[in-house]
């Protein structure tokens, strides 16, 4: 992730080497390179602007600490601001919990559900999956095939049209299991009916966690979508999928800013 950023930063910082005072032109050039790299990685434009202003301001205004050269001083500021931007990585707790999966169409919720089930199973927990995707044809076949390969019970009914009913009926059948993962159909922030549906699923299931699945290639739209999902069901974790492509995940990163956990998925091939 952001591999290009590393090299362009290094080049920009070289220009500061050997200087005794912070050079405005050099800082501006550095910030410009940084902006370019972040924007190309789909990081939210407003975040990029905020970050670059903070770096510019601090580099020029903060007094140079004794024994530190200009390059180190600016590097430290860039580092601190980038750390601020990234936020903390989330921790996945191993214990009894109900996880509700949410996300846009085609972001990889079903595949990720199976991968998560496998993850918890390997950690020695008893896991079950509820398929609450009543819309997409083949969704139940997909998750039940994946689950049967790894011997995980999967509740669902391709003929049922009511996702709420599936969750209501599915949960009691999962008693005795420690981790229950609820897969849902893809939806986006402008589909009000579907947003209401996931609010209801969240209420009925009393989910411990609500994780948002985001495609690494998602662009500037990511933050806005995440915000709407967050408003609806208080997302407490973000999973970035398809990191094995060439996407840099900057959109997903921006989406994760207000949220905590992250758990990057790595490959679609094999769970």
């Amino acid at each position: 992730m952001l591999d290009k950023l590393g090299s362009s930063l290094k080049d920009a910082l070289k220009k500061l080497a050997g200087k005794t005072v912070v050079d405005r032109a050099a800082v501006e050039e550095l910030v410009k390179d940084l902006q370019r790299a972040l924007l190309q990685s789909d990081v939210n434009v407003k975040l990029v602007m905020g970050l670059s202003n903070a770096i510019k301001k601090r580099s020029l205004e903060e007094e140079l600490p004794k024994g530190v050269n200009v390059r180190e001083h600016v590097l430290r500021i860039v580092y601190q601001e980038l750390v601020n931007l990234m936020g903390d990585g989330g921790e996945v707790k191993l214990g009894a919990q109900t996880i509700l999966m949410a996300g846009l169409q085609g972001s990889g919720k079903t595949t990720t559900t199976a991968k998560l089930a496998r993850y918890f199973q390997r950690k020695g927990l008893r896991v079950g999956v509820i398929c609450a995707d009543t819309f997409r044809p083949g969704a139940y076949e997909q998750i039940s095939t994946l689950c049967s390969k790894i011997n995980i019970p999967c509740f669902g009914d391709p003929k049922e049209k009511d996702a709420l009913k599936l969750v209501r009926d599915g949960l009691p059948s999962m008693s005795g299991l420690e981790v229950v993962i609820i897969d849902t159909q893809g939806r986006h922030a402008l589909e009000n009916d579907l947003i209401q549906e996931i609010i209801d699923i969240n209420t009925i299931s009393k989910a411990t966690h609500r994780w948002l699945v985001i495609d690494a290639a998602l662009g500037q739209q990511a933050s806005e979508q995440a915000r709407r999902f967050h408003e609806a069901i208080a997302i407490d974790g973000v999973i970035i999928t398809k990191m094995d492509g060439t996407a840099k995940g900057g959109g997903a990163l921006s989406a994760g800013l207000t949220l905590t956990a992250s758990f990057p998925g790595s490959s679609a091939w094999g769970i």
Partner: peptide, 27 residues
């Protein structure tokens, strides 16, 4: 249609390996 900068990279790769005559943008 919601993909970010990567859209351009991968479109280019597909075009190079198998070719593409037209594009459909979804979502």
């Amino acid at each position: 249609a919601v993909a970010g900068n990567d859209a351009v990279i991968r479109a280019d790769e597909f075009e190079k390996t198998v070719g593409a005559d037209a594009v459909v943008l979804t979502k």
